[in-house]
Amino acid sequence: MTAFIIDQQVSDLGIHAIAFVVNGITVPEESSPELDHYIETAEKALLASTDPKTLKTEPEFKVFRAVHAQLGKAARSEVAAPETLLRLLHRAGRLPRINPLVDIYNLVSAQTRLAFGSHDLTTITGDVRLAMTTGAEQFVPLGATEPVAVPTGEYAYLDDTEVLCRLEVRQCEKSKATAATTDALFIVHAGPGRDPVDLADARDRLAALLTEHLGARSPIDLETLA
Rank of each mutant, 00 (worst) to 15 (best):
K44M: 12
E58H: 13
E154I: 13
M1P: 13
G193F: 11
I25W: 01
D204C: 04
A74C: 05
I15H: 04
V79T: 08
L199A: 06
L121Q: 07
D103E: 13
A190V: 12
E146F: 15
L101T: 02
V22I: 15
A66W: 03
T182A: 12
V63T: 12
F20Q: 04
F64P: 03
D160V: 10
L114M: 07
A92I: 04
A208T: 14
V128Y: 00
E137V: 09
A80G: 10
D36W: 02
G24W: 11
A3C: 10
A17D: 15
E137C: 08
Y105K: 12
L142Y: 11
A177I: 00
R76W: 11
H119L: 09
T211W: 09
A208I: 05
D159G: 04
E60P: 11
G215F: 13
K73T: 11
R76A: 13
I124P: 01
L199R: 04
G215D: 14
A115Q: 07
V27G: 01
A156C: 12
R97K: 15
H213L: 05
E223L: 10
T112S: 15
K53P: 06
L85E: 00
Y105E: 10
H213N: 07
A149K: 14
D195R: 05
K44F: 12
L206A: 05
I220T: 15
A208G: 15
I5E: 04
F20M: 06
T84R: 07
V150F: 05
S175M: 01
E34K: 12
Q8T: 11
G143F: 01
L47W: 02
E60V: 15
F61G: 00
E137P: 06
A115H: 03
L89P: 00
A144W: 06
A80I: 06
I98C: 03
D159K: 03
A42D: 06
A226K: 10
E58T: 14
G126Q: 13
H68E: 10
A75T: 01
T152L: 09
R113L: 10
I187W: 01
V140F: 02
G93P: 00
A48V: 05
G153T: 05
F186V: 06
L206H: 02
I104T: 08
A115E: 06
L35I: 09
N23H: 10
A115W: 02
G215M: 13
A226V: 08
F139D: 00
L47N: 02
T123E: 07
V140T: 15
V67N: 00
A144C: 11
G193K: 12
G93W: 03
A80N: 10
P151L: 04
Q70V: 05
D36S: 14
T2N: 09
S77Y: 11
V128A: 02
G135C: 08
I124G: 02
R194C: 05
E83Q: 14
D7N: 08
T152H: 10
I104M: 09
T2C: 06
Q138S: 07
D36L: 13
T54C: 08
